[in-house]
Design a protein around this nucleic acid. Sequence first.
DNA 1: CGGTCTCTTGAGCAGAGTCAATGAACGTGG
DNA 2: CCACGTTCATTGACTCTGCTCAAGAGACCG
Lengths: 261, 261
Amino acid sequence: MALDRPYSAPARKRGRVESHIVHEIMIRKLETRAPLEEADKDMIRALPFVQREVEAGTYLVREGTTPQRCAFVLSGYAFRQKLTSDGARQILAVMLPGDFVDFQNLFLSESDHNVQALTRTRVAELATGDLRQVFLASAAISKAINTDALIESAIFREWILNIGRRDGRSRIGHLLCEFALRLRAAGIAASPVYEFPMTQEQLGDAVGLTSVHVSRILKGLALEGLVERRGRFVRILDWEGLRDASDFNENYLHFRQLQPA
Amino acid sequence: MALDRPYSAPARKRGRVESHIVHEIMIRKLETRAPLEEADKDMIRALPFVQREVEAGTYLVREGTTPQRCAFVLSGYAFRQKLTSDGARQILAVMLPGDFVDFQNLFLSESDHNVQALTRTRVAELATGDLRQVFLASAAISKAINTDALIESAIFREWILNIGRRDGRSRIGHLLCEFALRLRAAGIAASPVYEFPMTQEQLGDAVGLTSVHVSRILKGLALEGLVERRGRFVRILDWEGLRDASDFNENYLHFRQLQPA
DNA sequence: CGGTCTCTTGAGCAGAGTCAATGAACGTGG
DNA sequence: CCACGTTCATTGACTCTGCTCAAGAGACCG
C-alpha cells in the first residue's frame, strides 16, 4: 500500500510558517475550547516545537508506542487508523489544519491506534511532556484540552451511529457534511459547500464500505445532483439536499460548546 | 418500547450504600486514573450527592439538554444511546458500577446523546457544576477525569473498528470479551469468563446488527462451545477460543494506562 | 511516456435484514 | 399459587445491500 512509508519522511523547507505565528494559531484554537488568560497564552508561547513537512502516508503515531511528540496540523490533513488482524483498515478520525493530533494520548502510556498524514502535511511537533506540564500547571488550559478531546469523542460517537445504523448512501453523505462544516469552522472553506481530497478507498475505510461500493454511491449522489466528482475530490452541490439525505445534524460537532458557568 | 420511561423514576430505599462509602468508591475509581493527594481526596469527600435507584430504561441524560447532574454508577448498568431520524437505535457505550456517567459532557453545553439505565441501577448524582469546580481546582483530579474520558474515547475507537470492519460473529464475540475484562477490572467478576445481562436486541443495537441475526450468531457460538446462553445472560465458556474468534486485543482498554512521568 | 494509483463497471455471491409466526421466560396481581 | 400479559428468543422463507473478483480505463507523476 502506498501509504506505508517509514516514520521519518524528509522535512521540507518551503511553506514554513513563521515560528511565533504557530503559537498564535495554537492559542486561537485553544480559545475556541475555553477562554485563556494572558498568563496561559504565555505558557503556550513558551513551548518549543519543531516544524516539519511530511509526505502523504507518513506515520505520526504508531499503535503500541508511547508518543513522545504531539503534532499540531498547520496545513494538510491527517487521520487516525486501526487495522483488524486480517488487515482490514478502519479510519477513525480525520484531522484538519488547526487540530492537535495527540490530546487523545496525553495521559495514556501506549497509543491504541495509528495516525498518518492523509496528504502532504505540515505539522508543528511539541514534546508530549511539555504539553502535560502546561495541562497540570493551568486550569484554563486543562479545561481547553479536555474540552477539545471531548468534542473529538462526540465525533467518535456519531461515527459509531453512522457506521452502525445508516445505509451506505447516508454514511458517505454524512461524512461529506461533517467535513464541510468542520472545514468552514476551521476557516478553510467559506461555505458549507466545498471539496475534500480523499480517495474512494479512504472514504470507504472511514465509513465501513469497500471502495467499489463507494464508487457506486458517489455516482448515485452525482446523478441526483447532490455532489460533483472530480478525481479524488468531491464537491457538495446541494447542501440542503445532501443534509436531508444523510440524516445530518450538526449538534454533535459542538460549535457552540462552551458551558454556561 | 419498554425502555421509554419518564426521567424521574421512583427512588427506592433498599440497597442504599452508606454515604461516606460512596465517596471512597469514587476516590478509588479516580485513583485508577491518576494518583491523588490527600487534599484532592478531601475535595471529593466534600462533594454533596443524592443517591437513588432507577428502573431499567430510565433516562439519566437526554440528548439536547444541558446535564445538571453527573451520575456515578453504584450498582447495575447504564448505556449511552443515539437514534437515527428513522428510529434505528445505536448503543454507543455501556457503563458498569464504578463508572462516572457524565465526564463526556462536563464542558459541553448540550448532550449529543442519551444515557439510560440498562438494568435497575443505583446511582449517586453529583452536581455537574461541583464537578467542574474540583476539575478546575485540582490538577490531579483534572488529570484523572481527563484520563478517564480518554479511555472511554479509546473504547469508542475500538467500537468504530469493530462495527466498521468485522463480521457479525466477531463483533458479538468482541463485545463479550470487552465486558468480561471490564467486569473483572471493576472487581465484579473474578475471572474473564463471566455473564452479562443484555437482551439480544440490545446486543444488536450495540454492534449494528438486528436481534434476529444476533440470535443466530449466539446459537452458532454456542454450538462451537465458545459461549453458553441462558435467557438474557451470556456466559463465556472458552476464553481463548472466543478471543481468537473475535480478533480481541485488550490494549485499547488501557488497564495499565498511567503514563511514565 | 511508462508505471502506478485510482476509478469504473459487470457478474455473481453472501452476510445480514425483513416479515411473520411460534414458543419460552418472567413478573404481577388476583 | 396459578393465570395472564408482556417481553424476549427462535426459526423459516425470502429479499437486498454491499462484497468479491476481475478487467479495463483514466489520471497523475516523475
